[in-house]
Nucleic acid binder design. Structure first.
Length: 296
DNA sequence: CTTGGGTCCTGTGCGC
DNA sequence: TGCGCACAGGACCCAA
């Protein structure tokens, strides 16, 4: 089993942690300058993205699913998705060198894959780095958010009031697909990714291969609670990591969390008195980690 | 409508 | 030591 280099992919908790860190650096300030170093990431950037952002004030930062939105005083919202490998670095003028590793790979002022750099009016610099370029940015009228292509159709926020077992039951009714796949579908629940789906299923003792429509209500209650618990714990862990982020070069987006099953193939299950061994299977081309003994 | 598979992208780690 | 390849996966896209 390959190692993940100690990092985790940005799912809801990591994105929320990034939003929390970016808010004090951006909210209430104007964008003095924006340096866009390529045409796009996963998709081309929106037309005139730089002109539409430069000079605008940032009213506030919000999160929806795995997206961060910066509401601008122009009436537009700037949407950012970290994809798989997106990182954000915050440098303040007092930090000394604005960024370590200058002149790397021919980039005069930064590191390889620094794609967008924005400078706030107080000199704070925020750098978006994304080697795999699965990330995305867009601009849309804030009032038209409901019809924004990437946001329309998203399911409820798992930490919001409308998410519960009854909602899962309604979404899963009659569905034969494995519950693992159903939880990854952002139309059912917004913000879960491979890691936290595995963790939540383990906590609720549900097999990832079980058809989504064949889970008893009391087990869906446990699942909904497990989803909320694992996300909340990861957000809390990210928040505590934030206090030390300067020591990590100000790099945000990857906060190590203690996983019970993810990337733990062949290691012992941590359910008390289970003594099972964590298995790795592939579902829809993705790794699933679970305990065949205590997850049914 | 539902479901599954392909695709994009680069860094990393492993086997030969 | 160096090379090639599998793998990591979020979300769209399309085919059956």
């Amino acid at each position: 089993m390959r190692r993940l280099n100690g990092g985790t992919m940005p799912e809801l908790p990591e994105v929320e942690t990034v939003r929390t860190a970016l808010a004090p650096a951006m909210e209430g300030q104007r964008v003095r300058a924006i340096d866009i170093r390529r045409d796009g990431l996963r998709w081309p950037f929106p037309e005139n993205m730089g002109q539409r952002i430069e000079g605008r004030g940032v009213l506030r930062l919000r999160r929806r699913a795995k997206y961060i939105m910066a509401d601008l005083d122009s009436g537009e919202s700037w949407l950012i998705h970290l994809g798989m490998s997106g990182r954000v670095t915050i440098s303040t003028p007092g930090d000394g060198p604005m960024r370590p590793g200058a002149f790397v790979h021919g980039h005069p002022d930064g590191q390889a894959h620094d794609h967008v750099v924005w400078t706030m009016e107080d000199g704070t610099r925020v750098t978006f780095n994304d080697p795999r370029r699965f990330g995305a940015m867009d601009l849309f009228a804030t009032v038209d958010e409901a019809s924004q292509k990437l946001l329309a159709g998203l399911g409820p926020e798992p930490l919001g009031n409308s998410f519960d077992a009854a909602l899962l039951a309604a979404r899963f009714k009659g569905r034969r697909m494995p519950v693992k796949s159903a939880l990854l579908d952002q139309r059912n629940v917004a913000g879960l990714g491979n890691i936290y789906v595995c963790e939540a299923l383990w906590r609720s003792h549900i097999s990832p291969t079980r058809p989504a429509g064949k889970i008893a209500m009391h087990r869906l209650e446990a699942l909904a609670q497990a989803i909320r618990d694992v996300l909340r714990e990861a957000i809390d862990a990210g928040g505590s990591s934030l206090k030390d982020y300067r020591q990590a070069d100000g790099q945000l987006g990857y906060f190590q969390h203690r996983f019970a099953v993810y990337d733990r193939a062949a290691l012992p299950c941590q359910t008390p008195e289970c003594a099972g061994e964590i298995a790795r299977i592939v579902q829809s081309g993705r790794s699933t980690f679970y305990c065949p003994r205590c997850q049914r």
